[in-house]
Design a protein around this nucleic acid. Structure first.
Length: 1119
RNA sequence: GCUCAAGUGGCGGAAUUGGUAGACGCGCUGGAUUCAAAAUCCAGUUCUUUCGAGAGUGUGGGUUCGAUUCCCACCUUGAGUACCA
């Protein structure tokens, strides 16, 4: 019987589907094992041979684990929301759901062809409302949570409200927006519900905010940082600009440290961990505040307090003086428009009490900067009344009545035009900088602000104004890309202002420069030219002093950036200290003196979560009085509405703005027509949709319980499957999917929803399969310029006669040679008149030829090429052959349609079988490595399968013997068991394929047909080539699927040898081998070897200096 | 620039703890079979060679009896990231 892959493979694929062979049970006596692939986005192009590589590897592992007695979960699904389906919808008007459905069907067919052991009963699709219902649910959970730094986890928002009610926000240690104002418990109670909502939004883990986003005009949507590559969009390479928009964001920054720490606990590839570590970008250093020292500064807006000052405020609020308490007792009961707040910040000033609605400030007198305060407050339109401590303590009633009077009869103070107000130097401007090198603070000789820094306009002196403004205009005109491309040019401008060095008190210049980025750190740096190359270059360029603070280091040519072993000099109390000590001491002193503190900074930004797209999850959100409201979980899913067009609306709203049924009826709890928005109980729904990574950030949990309609997965199932044991997918998701998924998992863990905080124990990145493109070399003829020929028309005729010519690859090695070959051919075949030969020039063009037209010897199917639909122009082309064949050139490139090097797995399955495809993909090379595909190589594994098949047959009859196997046969079997088992455990699938080949070659040579050998062999092969293994297994008389069989057990006793073929080396070089019994002692071996005639010949009479004998390994004779 | 990974025949790659470099497969060469081809089978295939042997894992050095493997410097390629203070 011939091995017929077509029949066998169809038969067993049908068997597996009908018997649900790979359906995983949610409980079992066996240990559990969860093998997961990154689910595919079902694109219209279908799969090429590169896609299934990871799936084949994971399938082999899953099948192996079943043989090893595990209850294996091996699911598959589709990441079916996404841009291409939407772009296609825009072009064709087809609903993305429809094209997605079609693409999924194609994918499923292609996957089924390869014989994967997926449990399809658990399939998920992110675009299925029953699935995204739970994506929406998780969004609500995030909205209802805040990050408590004290407990270092996410907590329910109600616990935060409780604290606000009791103590205000002074005691809260949370991850929140930077510009959060302080308020007391009483303030909280007095806030309107809208105000409360606004404040809570600053703490929620998903929040709405005006953020600078990456807007891609061509795609009409915002993009996340990981969706931008080299300043242009990852998809389509469109330019991206910065734009302020109101967007949902995810407070992933709250998890920065835990995302970093978690990497230590998971077995993921180091490069991937490195790239996440870089992306999170933790840097340890200090926050330092520099005061601005300026002759004339303009004030035109409120100044925010620094973090440290806000910290100090907390203390102040809690430690009120007796007089303060007495007066507050009187004022705090005022309600409504006359409500007072205590210790409130206005500008950089802290006022004792203020009634904001009446513009009245009440203060204790005797503050040192009273005059400045009065001038500033009045400029802001406030009235100020002041009392002394004594006045309050002696007659608080009188004081209160004066306050009441001031409320009722306010002094008319005109709010002065802000531009005109010139406030003299009150040291109110401060520049916060972040530095990783506080030890070099005495090396600071200037400061640089980003051109966009908010202080720039305020501190620039009149003299420098024109220059600074010109510089800002110039930089803002440059695109992000230009700025990135041109990092060499040094540019900047002096503001004219000076800062005060916090330690030395010296005046230092403040510059602006575009090498400082507005969106990293504080957008300002303290420049230490001697210790940072960019600062150094900047200082050199603008002739700023470069003080040297390193002992014994030459900085005349470049900055000294090394840390280890560096000793600090010229730095007051830091002089003479080593880098590490100086760093610690500098931070200690800053904290003591109150102008700096140790801080850890992260590069990781909060993730923008809104997309102006149609084909994504709708938010479960409606807007009431401009504030977002969550729809109760019980009403989910909020299903994507139908729209007429998938483009943004004419007034620039996202595509959902086209929907006519997109309003939330809060009374009837359902989505209703927009006509009903006039109703008081009907509100508009969110028009943005969620980004692609929303659905993929938790799908691995859904597989555990995919049809549950009560919960996103049941507690029992989550507890049973816990986490993914093996996850296989591409490394391109390092800073996208794999980071977001870890973030959500940690959040869900905090909330007690999932039992583990890392979703995948082990991860492997499969390498890309590249295409091997084929090139043909086309000759183009044209007439030399300026030939001086009289008759152009006749030259046209000459060219007319010359056909398109292709030259076989090895006929030329240079362009000149190419020209000669072509000309000779044209002359020989009378395509060219010898009289014109010198006037014609020939150039070479390499053209991609379809790889399907090229055989294993790189020979082109010339007729096939001429008749190929893509090569219509070459029907009458001439081919210059070598040895009767046209040889193509080869080059390894990424697989892509335009290079005609894409190989479809369906064709391979058709011609060679799924088992061959699986074996070959594994045989190409190590799983993690990128490697080129060359279809010709498949004949090796294909003939291996035929040889394997033959072992079980005697001519056409299936025939195995029950006789005892020989020692050699057992040795081959057990050697193979050991190697294959080790290889699978180490994911070294390529080497086990060669092990199978060796085993089959050996057993063929031994003419082995023993059941005791061939039965275990079928099991060994079955994870790799499951169809042929099932067929052989059933021929061997088994009724159950081979997947239920136990993996053969290795017995070392079969490999025990009595003799060893020793390599005999001279000075480490192997010269010959010698067969010796293994039970000899070192001395005996040495004696035999030294007496051997070959040894004597090698030594040429010399006496060896030393003889190394390692029994069982090697003998080395040192001469 | 920085970080990481990798450099082995004509090609994909093997050598898992330092111990016979090039397993296995493709391709190539020769042979058998065939009217012929495909398929199949057999033999050979790192380079040099005076046929004795010698050299050889990107380059140069080091450790070692012995290095593809460990250490140092450099070169090349690929990936990621990029004025990150």
């Amino acid at each position: 019987m011939q091995y017929n892959h077509l029949d066998i493979e169809k038969k067993w694929q049908k068997f597996w589907a009908e018997n649900q062979t790979f359906k995983a049970s949610n409980q079992s006596d066996k240990p559990k094992y969860y093998v997961l692939d990154m689910f595919p986005y079902p694109s219209g192009a279908g799969l090429h041979v590169g896609h299934p590589l990871g799936y084949i590897a994971s399938d082999i592992y899953a099948r192996y684990k079943r043989h090893k007695g595990f209850n294996v979960l091996h699911p598959q699904g589709y990441d079916s929301f996404g841009l291409p389906a939407e772009q296609y919808a825009i072009q064709t008007g087809q609903h993305p759901a429809k094209t997605t459905e079609e693409n999924v069907a194609t994918y499923r067919k292609q996957l089924d062809n390869i014989g994967f052991s997926f449990d399809w009963s658990r399939e998920v699709r992110t675009s299925d409302p029953e699935y995204y219902k739970w994506t929406q649910w998780i969004f609500i959970q995030l909205f209802n949570s805040w990050y408590n730094k004290e407990s270092d986890k996410a907590e329910d928002i109600s616990s935060l409200e409780k604290i606000f009610k009791k103590d205000g926000n002074a005691t809260v240690n949370a991850v929140c927006d930077e510009e959060t104002q302080y308020f007391s418990a009483d303030d909280w109670k007095a806030f309107s519900s809208t105000e409360k909502e606004e404040i809570l939004l600053q703490y929620r883990l998903t929040f709405l905010s005006d953020t600078e986003v990456n807007w891609c005009p061509a795609l009409g949507t915002v993009l996340a940082n990981d969706e931008i590559v080299n300043g242009v969009s990852e998809r389509g390479s469109h330019p991206v600009i910065r734009k302020k928009m109101t967007q949902w964001s995810m407070r992933i920054s709250a998890y920065a440290q835990r995302l970093l720490d978690g990497l230590e606990t998971i077995d993921w590839p180091q490069p991937l961990k490195d790239s996440q570590t870089n992306w999170i970008g933790r840097s340890q250093g200090a926050m330092v505040t520099f005061k601005v020292d300026s002759g004339a500064i303009k004030s035109n807006s409120e100044i925010k307090l620094s973090y440290k000052e806000l910290e100090a405020l907390k203390e102040l609020r809690q430690n009120l003086s007796k007089a303060e308490i007495t007066l507050w007792d009187e004022l705090k009961n005022k309600k409504g428009a006359t409500k007072f707040r205590k210790k409130y910040t206005i500008g950089t000033f802290l006022v004792d009490y203020v009634c904001v609605s009446k513009n009245l400030i009440v203060e204790f007198s005797g503050k040192e900067d009273e005059a400045a305060r009065t001038e500033f407050f009045e400029s802001k339109g406030f009235n100020i009344i002041r009392f002394t401590n004594e006045e309050v303590l002696q007659n608080v009633v009188k004081v209160v009545s004066e306050i009441n009077f001031a409320i009722q009869f306010p002094k008319v103070t005109e709010k002065k035009s802000e531009e005109k107000v010139v406030v003299k130097d009150y040291n109110q401007y401060k520049i916060d900088v972040f530095t990783t090198r506080p030890d070099t603070i005495y090396g600071v000789s200037f400061m640089t602000l980003a051109p966009e820094h908010e202080l720039v306009a305020k501190i620039t002196t009149d003299a420098q104004k024109a220059e600074v403004e010109a510089y800002i205009t110039a930089t803002s005109k440059r695109s992000e890309r230009d700025r990135m491309a041109d990092v060499k040019t040094i540019s900047g401008a002096f503001t004219g202002a000076f800062a005060i060095h916090p330690f030395s008190g010296e005046k230092i210049q403040i510059w602006i420069g575009d090498y400082v980025l507005a969106n990293y750190g504080t957008g300002a740096v303290m420049a230490v030219p001697c210790g940072d190359q960019r600062d150094y270059d900047f200082a050199k360029h603008f002739n700023i002093p470069i003080p040297n603070i390193f002992e014994g280091v030459d900085i005349s040519e470049e900055a000294h950036t090394g840390k280890e072993g560096t000793i600090i000099a010229n730095s007051d109390f830091l002089s003479g200290l080593k880098y590490k000590k100086a760093l610690k001491l500098a931070i200690f002193e800053m904290e003591k003196r109150g102008f700096g503190y140790g801080k850890i900074n992260y590069r990781l930004r909060d993730a923008v979560f809104s997309r102006q797209r149609y084909w994504g999850e709708p938010f479960p959100v409606y807007y009431k009085d401009g504030m977002p409201q969550m729809i109760d979980a019980e009403h989910l899913p909020i299903v994507l509405p139908e729209v007429e067009k998938y483009l943004p609306t004419e007034d620039g709203k996202p595509p959902l703005g086209n929907a006519t049924e997109w309003a939330w009826d809060t009374r009837n709890k359902k989505v209703v027509s927009n006509d009903k928005l006039k109703n008081k109980t009907v509100y508009p729904l969110e028009l943005n949709t969620m980004p692609g990574w929303a659905g993929s950030s938790w799908y691995f949990n859904r597989y555990m319980d995919p049809t549950n309609s009560e919960a996103f997965a049941s507690k029992e199932n989550l507890e049973y499957w816990r986490e993914v044991d093996l996850y296989i997918g591409g490394s391109e998701h390092a800073t996208g999917h794999l980071l977001y998924a870890r973030f959500w998992q940690k959040f869900l863990f905090d909330k007690g929803i999932v039992p583990v905080d890392e979703f995948a124990k082990k991860l492997i990145n499969q390498g890309m399969i590249l295409g091997t493109s084929a090139f043909v070399y086309k000759a183009t003829a044209f007439v030399k310029n300026g030939c001086g020929c009289s008759d152009e028309k006749s030259m046209d005729d000459v060219l007319e006669k010359i056909p398109t010519v292709f030259v076989s690859k090895n006929l030329f090695s240079s362009d000149d040679e190419f020209e000669t070959v072509v000309k000779n051919y044209l002359l020989d075949n009378k395509f060219l008149d010898p009289n014109f030969a010198d006037l014609v020039m020939i150039t070479k063009t390499a053209i991609h030829a379809d790889v399907a037209l090229v055989n294993a010897s790189d020979e082109l199917d010339v007729d096939g090429f001429k008749n190929h639909p893509l090569n219509g122009d070459y029907k009458n082309a001439e081919f210059i052959l070598e040895e009767k064949a046209y040889k193509v050139g080869r080059e390894v490139e990424k697989m892509s349609k335009s290079k005609y090097n894409v190989v479809n797995p369906d064709d391979i399955v058709e011609n060679y079988g799924a088992d061959s495809l699986r074996l070959f993909e594994m045989f190409l090379g190590p799983l993690e490595q990128a490697k080129p595909w060359k279809t010709s190589g498949i004949s090796g594994v294909s003939s291996f399968l035929k040889k394997l098949w033959k072992l079980y047959f005697n001519d056409d009859n299936f025939e195995v013997s029950d006789a005892e196997p020989t020692k050699d046969e057992l040795k081959t079997l057990h050697k193979t068991i050991k190697k294959v088992e080790d290889d699978i455990e180490n994911f070294s699938f390529n080497t086990s394929v060669s092990t199978f080949m060796i085993a089959v070659n050996e057993l063929t040579a031994l003419k082995c047909n023993k059941r005791a050998i061939l039965e275990p062999l079928a099991i060994l092969v079955s994870p790799y080539a499951p169809h042929i293994a099932e067929e052989l297994w059933s021929l061997l008389g088994h009724k159950e699927s081979i997947s239920t069989a136990n993996f053969p057990v290795f017995e070392a006793s079969h490999l025990v040898e009595s003799a060893k073929n020793y390599p005999i080396s001279f000075n480490g070089k192997m010269r010959f081998t010698l067969e010796l019994p293994l039970d000899l002692s070192k001395e005996e071996i040495e004696k035999i070897v030294m007496e051997n005639e070959k040894t004597i010949a090698q030594l040429e009479g010399k006496t060896p200096k030393k003889v190394i004998v390692v029994p069982g390994k090697i003998i080395n004779i040192v001469g």
